[in-house]
Design a binder for these strands. Sequence first.
DNA 1: CCTCGACGATCAGGATACGCATTCGCGGCT
DNA 2: AGCCGCGAATGCGTATCCTGATCGTCGAGG
Lengths: 225, 225
Amino acid sequence: MRILIVEDEPTLGRQLKTTLEQNGYAVDLSVDGEDGHFMGSSEDYDAVILDLGLPEIDGLTVLGMWRKEGRKFPVLVLTARDSWSDKVAGLDAGADDYLAKPFQTEELIARLRALIRRASGNSSSELIAGDVRLDTRSGRVTLNGEPVKLTAQEYKLLSYLLHHKGKVVSRTELIEHIYDQDFDRDSNTIEVFVTRIRKKLGPDVITTIRGLGYSLDDPAQPKRG
Amino acid sequence: MRILIVEDEPTLGRQLKTTLEQNGYAVDLSVDGEDGHFMGSSEDYDAVILDLGLPEIDGLTVLGMWRKEGRKFPVLVLTARDSWSDKVAGLDAGADDYLAKPFQTEELIARLRALIRRASGNSSSELIAGDVRLDTRSGRVTLNGEPVKLTAQEYKLLSYLLHHKGKVVSRTELIEHIYDQDFDRDSNTIEVFVTRIRKKLGPDVITTIRGLGYSLDDPAQPKRG
DNA sequence: CCTCGACGATCAGGATACGCATTCGCGGCT
DNA sequence: AGCCGCGAATGCGTATCCTGATCGTCGAGG
């Protein structure tokens, strides 16, 4: 899952980035409205954390522009504390959730998780496909109830596929969502990790669609839609 | 476990802080309502001790603001004398327990412990995982019934993990809950203490989740959810 | 049915980051 | 003064990651 943080205060921004990365997200950080808007428009994020109190362009404006451009990623808005009007305005402008500064990092993580979950249409914190279960809260994966040890990258890849169950996901899309901005696109890491996941969870979990990418289907309600 | 004390009277505040620290808590002290409210909103506490008789902003107001903001930590309210009305008002405003001044520090400790225990969903004062037992009342730890001597920090770390059994706890989270406000986040103390605990309790008590943190699982009811 | 090209899977190597153990100096407590 | 726990620094071992090369497979066209 790839996140964009638009936050002008460098200290807070860095800290957030670090925290999120420790929680398994790929994070890009932008320090002003213009750059933030550009990045949100050009890259594909799974969620955006947006500070409203930005210099130059206001956060609300940026949010409005994104929505006008048709960007659909969920946006979590940060506002200075107690500014009730900002909250209303933010939600009006298309924010999906709202958090007042100061906030607790754990709460931010929780809300972010909820946001991404909602965006992918899941209601539980457990993602399930066939015999495979992934709990986003505890970061655990089980196969037929047996715990399976996945490495960080394997987990990210599997998690992304599960969030887009049934959809064909291209290699490029995977790279863009698992790694942050600067990463060599001509690399076969994705294939390598797919192989590894298949070794651990069985060969049928991930289906290859030749020339297009990969797909993860739920045999519970499979062919014949 | 990290505690916030909001108490305007400096002598009592300091004394409480010292006492609690001697009992193994990481303690932040705030001397007025505004600052106290800010700290409770921005940091992650496991419990808060709140004096109602504050200058500037009233304790009840602070409590109300926290609850409105969605802060969930348990709050132990201190009131002057036996003012019944204050008690009622406090509980109404979202306090979890109540203690009239003057009080015995021992009683305060006991109630605090109960509060934290309840908040983490445990009903007993004993935390158990596998062969390890930790009694929060006596501060004793046993391995297969044999008493084990842990140092203060080792105890805090183990206790926090036990309170969050089954969840993956990041290094950051551990630092935030074991130490008080100002502490170097880039430090390897957590790893050091994990090592030391493993030496005393066996290598399998604490599981490492590479890249994410640590986790403590209960082998008593593991496989087959 | 066979061949060939393109794409994907797999393997092995080296680089790296991460966690672990150990050491050491500081400071508080006895 | 001596002991002990704490936390910083250091070096080591290894899981994990990425790269590049090779092998396998699918599918189209002859």
